[in-house]
Write a protein that binds this DNA or RNA. Structure first.
Lengths: 197, 197
DNA sequence: CTTCAGATAGAGCGTTCGTTTTAGCCCTTG
DNA sequence: CAAGGGCTAAAACGAACGCTCTATCTGAAG
């Protein structure tokens, strides 16, 4: 047995597979195989079945991506440069993965929209948590609350959409363009100097 | 028989189902049922099977969405206002559909990224055709070609991402915020007056 | 009327899906 | 040593999947 528990291996494997193949396209047996666990183990830790595994996996992806986002945002003091760093980071890891490891929740979210499953709720929570990180960064940079709210929502939307475009086109260009334009947009706001940063 | 051919009904039904459930989540038999056709008919018109149906359906969705986009872009002379009109149009039809009829290609594209199917190619072509419409609008408004290219890519990405956010959150707010911020971004450019418009 | 390709119809193929079930293993505790 | 709970293992269920097959229907040309 490795140092990661069987349950953790299941969650991590599921999060990767959901990211790449979506909810419908990912099978329970495939998750078990990828996690080097057996079907019995999966149903032991998640008696409620596939949807419960997916919910845990998406929550994990949420936190994992939030850490990456936080680091990119903290790498630059200027908010515009920080947003551009986020786009750069997304482009790098996307290219390195062969254009397959995109946003961890988009695929799963879109497939389960019609259904009233818990999945879309955790996906919405993930989006909100990422927007919250961006919102805080803007507030710390002296933005007014209304501006920060609108901007944070739009920045996350744009990064989301640019990542999808980059995946489909197999090119970093959409993310680079998004980074440039978002930096310009952020820079177009008058900001009151703050002692906080 | 109605006035639309069996083949057309299959393509239209497939495009709707792909939009709502993605590629993996949509079955051939479901397409046939929705199109009021039989399985035999589907395989008669598309001997290559499910993927061929999906390719035809996505191409149809591409043109259908391009028409909507063109109309929204032409409804306003000012490019910023035109982009905002696009966001407004997307928000309206999304709400009316109960947040299920989003971008017609995103779901299918994300699911088939790993595979080397023809689907992601037609999805990429759709994205490019929509960017082209936006690019032309910006050029006609006097934008420099480099600015127009970057902007068009980013605008389509943002609308794409904002639509996904709106679907997941079941709220028009992401699209409204995107419309406002995109209008601001477009307006931040110096534009040379043109006699063309 | 006959002919024959285009179009429709649906049973059934093998496979995989999510899930359930039953059995057995390991390892700590009494 | 015995006991029992946490965990693993694998067989098997019904349902649905994409697809193939054969059979029938339709309608215009000869």
């Amino acid at each position: 047995m490795g140092q990661t528990s069987t349950r953790d291996r299941i969650v991590i494997a599921a999060s990767r597979l959901l990211q790449r193949q979506g909810y419908v396209g990912t099978g329970i047996k495939q998750i078990a195989k990828e996690a080097q666990a057996t079907l019995g183990s999966v149903y032991h830790f998640f008696p409620d079945g596939k949807e419960a595994v997916a919910v845990a996996a998406i929550k994990y992806s949420d936190q994992e991506f939030a850490a990456i986002l936080r680091e990119a945002l903290n790498s630059e003091q200027d908010p515009g440069a920080a947003v551009e760093a986020c786009a750069r980071q997304l482009a790098d890891s996307l290219r390195e993965s062969g254009w397959i490891d995109g946003c961890p929740v988009t695929a799963a979210a879109l497939e389960t929209l019609g259904t009233d499953s818990e999945i879309q709720q955790v996906c919405a929570a993930a989006l909100r948590s990422w927007e919250g990180l961006m919102y805080d960064k803007l507030l710390r940079s002296g933005f007014r609350t209304e501006d920060a709210r609108d901007l944070a929502t739009t920045i996350i939307s744009t990064l989301e959409g640019a990542e999808v475009s980059a995946q489909v086109k197999r090119s970093e260009e959409p993310l680079e363009a998004a980074g440039r334009q978002l930096a310009r947009l952020v820079g177009s706001y008058e900001v009151v100097p703050s002692v906080a940063e």
